[in-house]
Design a protein around this nucleic acid. Structure first.
Lengths: 336, 336
DNA sequence: CTGTTAGCGCCTTCAG
DNA sequence: CTGAAGGCGCTAACAG
């Protein structure tokens, strides 16, 4: 930390400038009114000595770090990457830095990781899609200030920034209904994932609202490989009458499309395919992939806005649920 | 940082256990031999009081943070994501955390960002593909301990973990030569990017070694959109006689393939296409994309290994250059 | 083996 | 407007 060998301290600067440490501290922080002459000398000394304050000492005095942590199950997930990027840029504009804590999908480590991260930082962002709700509730109390991302947690004292997956799925179903599809397949995500549960609720609601609609659920996954491996299962659903498929996310959809093409299935001619998340690649697939767009960077920025308020001792601001936006592309077409 | 409201301190624990702070500190750090009875009491007190040490105070005393920073131009680049993931996991296994500093491609901010990050951390990892060499040299001296990633910096006192792009390109060219191609096009990356310069060197070397080989350079970019927009330019090169294309990276190659397909160009029938980096999507494109695989996670782990040694006061260990591995797939085929 | 004593570098009353 | 003094929480000598 700080400099190599013994760093120059505020005392050195004070001596060099012939003033007290207090004065140096004042010009450093622009506090009170300091004699312009002193300001000059101190700044000169700081420059010639190449002094810069010790963050550790500052932290000890102030009780804060200007650092927040983001706890994620997998840094390689495009959704979390986008959120991290947005969060990191927003926080940086307020002089805060973001520390990442990747739990590598080990749900059992998440609590300890979060707590440890919280000890190092002023606040944390929690992405824990698989953690059981009760554990998460306890954890959230313990590590406040905190913002939870991408999963519901009703009536908890914590801001939640999330995506309205229920609504997103329903909108996507409407799109397919509009194209004439009446029998769909939903390729689900990880069984324990909260956002998968939300999507399933969307599926159920859609079925209730549209009695003539049928949606078969096919167990799936969350990665390209999963989608690829699921092609046969999906074809089974098609043989059952499904004319369109909604995948848990774009990666699954892309992997699925790849395999379907190998199997000679025409998309969307034989089968329509839709994904979720609108990853950058979606628009460049062949056929381009219909998806539900999620504002990843914006989510990151909102997370920071909430966290900043909390750090400043402000209230727990309202949660936000972003409504995904349909990006209708070539992979979904009229039934028939 | 630390707890909410006024946190319990080591003094509280000492009082509660009826011992001195020093003893508490000792059991906390497993230092010296402490009377088992005391250990018991202290641990009990720690548990009942829910005490956990202040990292800030520790940092101040030790002069370190157990935190490193990674400075990157763009967190959304798959290469850096992979490295960050590997770095973060490796560092975590030694109790270190990683803080990210995204400079959002603003080259002029990189120095300030790196220096600021260094003040907060015990060491930094520098990814600065566009920074002019002289500036980088000065910076590297200033922020040591540091490891530089993915760009050469001859004779500098810093470990470099990189990719042998020269070799990678040459191996890729050999692959295409083996397929009978004698006239290639290289779609270049960002003009100021160090790794693009390396690739260009590979191109030049290949041309020198193979007098019958011709490689036209087409100005390009680094993203999907860039590749997409470059299709016409690439077709120009093909009309000039090129039968195969090497793209700066996979994203460019994928964007290019998308557009070519729209234009009715058969890959690899009419034109072979190869990328670089072997991103996850490469194997799932249609046709699957021939690429040069780069061990992103492994690079991150090696970066940590070097950094750990430096932090411990060890020597500047040898730099490492990973040789990309050819992943020959469907997008490259025999000429004709 | 344990307690006391100094700081680590900075900020912040409180006098002057 | 400025300087002196104490303390943030912890660890590392140094005595006992």
């Amino acid at each position: 930390m700080g400099e190599r060998s013994r760093a120059t301290t505020i005392a050195d600067v004070a001596a060099h400038a012939g003033v007290s440490q207090a004065s140096v501290s004042r010009v450093l922080n622009g506090k009170q009114t300091v004699d312009p002459a002193i300001v000059q000398r101190v700044q000169a000394s700081i420059a010639t000595l190449g002094y810069s304050p010790s963050v550790a000492a500052r932290s000890l005095v102030h009780g804060r770090n200007d650092t927040i942590a983001m706890v994620v199950p997998d840094l390689e997930n495009p959704l979390f990457q986008g959120i991290l990027k947005g969060l990191s840029l927003a926080a940086a504009s307020d002089g805060y830095r973001v520390l990442v804590a990747d739990t590598a999908e080990r749900v059992d480590d998440e609590e300890a990781t979060a707590i440890e991260a919280r000890h190092r930082c002023d606040a944390i962002v929690l992405c824990a899609p698989r953690m059981p709700e009760q554990r998460l509730r306890r954890l959230v109390e313990q590590v406040a200030p905190v913002v939870v991302v991408n999963r519901p947690l009703p009536d908890a004292d914590v801001p939640i920034i999330g995506v309205d997956y229920v609504r997103g799925i329903r909108d996507l179903v409407e799109h397919l209904l509009g194209l004439g599809h009446r029998h769909l397949a939903y390729v689900s995500g990880p069984a324990t994932s909260a956002s998968n549960a939300e999507r399933l609720r969307g599926v159920e609601e859609a079925e209730q609202v549209h009695p003539d609609l049928r949606i078969d659920v096919v167990p799936g996954g969350s990665r390209l490989e999963d989608g690829y491996a699921l092609a046969e299962a999906v074809l089974g659903a098609r043989d059952d009458g499904a004319t369109a498929v909604i995948a848990f996310n774009d990666l699954v959809a892309l992997g699925l499309m790849t395999r379907l093409r190998q199997l000679g299935v025409d998309v969307p001619g034989d089968l329509s395919i839709a994904g979720f998340d609108d990853v950058p690649m979606a628009g460049f697939a062949t056929p381009s992939l219909t998806s539900m767009s999620v504002p990843r960077g914006e989510i990151g920025a909102q997370v920071w806005a909430r966290l900043r308020t909390l750090i400043a001792g402000g209230p727990i601001e309202h949660s936000v649920l972003y409504r995904p936006r349909l990006e209708a592309r070539e992979s979904t077409g009229p039934v028939g």
